[in-house]
Amino acid sequence: MSEPASSSSGSNARRLLSFALGTAVGRAVLRRAGSPELLRRTNFRGREVTLAGGPALAAGASVGAAAGAPTPAAAAAALTAGLGAGAVGLYDDVVGARPEQKAAKGLKGHLAALREGRVTSGLVKVAGVGAAGLAASALLAADPGRRRASRTGLVADVLLGAGVIAGTANLLNLFDLRPGRAIKAGALLGAPLMPGRAGGLAAGPLGAAAGVLPDDLGERAMLGDCGANAYGALLGVAIAARTGPAGRAAVLAGLVALTAASEKVSFTQVIQSTPGLRELDALGRRP
């Protein structure tokens, strides 16, 4: 059944507001942040860039998604996921650059460090993104408009939603290896989420990403864990808001499969060897 005309008009207005606000806030934060020494990094080509693109995207995407959310509970979930994942991502971006932190690579490396009594910034990020995803999923489940389930079904629904939110945050981070790649991957994921009552939850992140994209492609700024995690987490909220347990389980299975594949196969090599993907990946990037 299609939405009534008045409801559809309201949804369109929320999506436009969400996209525009995400873009405006993202651009404003990026301009004001500048390029402090703490956030300067060298990218894959040896150019000096700033990680300020991450906080800019996290702030713009979170504010935009909350503004376009269909209910107060969904708005709270968006702010929790976006700002929470962005904060622990920024912590890892800053603290993880220290020499004593660089030795631990991947989840296995972080767990090995924990067994030695060291808590790495990467492990803090993993735990923080998971906690933000769990809290956001619980807020979505508490929405009065969501169909009630048994206690067992509710717990399963919340856990599946948390997995989707955290898994999407991690997936977008895996794509953040070349200028513009994570933003483009998020756009492909988020565009189908735009229609419908909950479309504003995806419009905000896409608007913020559009605002940061020119600096990302121009190799003036990069997303880092802060931006990629927040971007992915908010798209995860948009997915969780429009799916039930079966849909969440299917999405989570796909996220787990892609994450496992990334341990065995280089996404960069796959993209470079696949016509269409190769050209899309390079679109707008400096030669």
Rank of each mutant, 00 (worst) to 15 (best):
C226F: 04
G227H: 03
T268N: 10
L107W: 10
R178T: 09
S273N: 14
G218P: 08
G122I: 00
G82H: 01
A138N: 08
D92A: 07
P99R: 08
A233H: 01
L134T: 01
N229H: 12
R151P: 12
A138P: 12
A209D: 06
P195D: 08
G224K: 01
L283K: 07
A67D: 03
G145A: 07
L234C: 02
A61N: 06
G34E: 14
R242V: 12
S62F: 07
L171E: 04
A185G: 09
G167Y: 03
A69P: 06
A221R: 01
L51M: 13
Q101C: 10
E219K: 09
L177D: 04
A233Q: 02
R98V: 13
L79N: 02
R41E: 15
A203F: 02
L223K: 05
S273L: 14
R278V: 13
A65E: 02
V63D: 03
I183N: 04
P70G: 03
L258Y: 01
L111D: 09
T23V: 14
L16K: 11
L280A: 12
S262F: 10
P72D: 02
R220I: 14
T42S: 15
V63R: 05
P36L: 11
L213V: 12
A240S: 10
A208C: 06
L160C: 07
A210E: 11
L277G: 01
L201T: 05
K125Q: 07
Q101P: 08
V126H: 01
A65V: 03
G106M: 09
A246F: 14
S266R: 11
Y231D: 08
